[in-house]
Amino acid sequence: MTHLPWDLQLLNTCAALLLLLSFAMLSQRRIVTLVDLLAIQGGLLAVATLLLAWRTGQPHLYLSALLTVALKVAFLPWLLHRLIHRLEVYWDTEPLLNISGTLLAGVVIVVFAFGLAQPITQLANTTMRSAIGIAIAVVLLAFLMMITRRKAMSQVIGFLSMENGLFFGAMSATYGMPMVIELGVALDVLVAVLVLGVFFFQIREQFDSLDLHHLESLKESE
């Protein structure tokens, strides 16, 4: 095995931790903890970005690291915590698929993602190309989490986690997206969470619950 420089090793560690965190989120039913995990994921992402910025010397990556910290470590978790307390949803109910089943499905997805990343890895010429598979896996795992949860809050967290995965993927494949797109995506996420926050209150007002299966009654009747 070739000897990697320490910063690259650190980067790969970050990537591995990201994946681990995704699994942790997949298995976690306490919503407060989910938000904390999301914040940690954001923090890891920021560290990875900083490392990459230092390594490649690209100034815009510093900026996006800063943005990540501000948005994903500080602001969004704070907002979500506030929502949780005001809405008093601390626990998600039993997921649609039980935890162990979900985790097994997650493993299959990770294998699929790594297989998928193989050709992309060969095309990319960045130092972090091995992390592309992890990024795809994070996106798909977040998707899986959104599918299996009942509470709207967990789905928002899944959505944010998915965005983390996309961000990480862009970073490892091409050293980050152009600044404009990055800013745009950050803004989108912010607006989405705010809009969803409003939605939560509306849903609860309508159904006295945040459980999404109530929305099934909106289906066009036969």
Binding site: F143, L144, T148, R149, L212, H213, L215, E216
Partner: peptide, 12 residues
Amino acid sequence: QGRIAAYLLYSF
């Protein structure tokens, strides 16, 4: 289906 999980599954 009217279930968000099902819709998400379609996208997935």
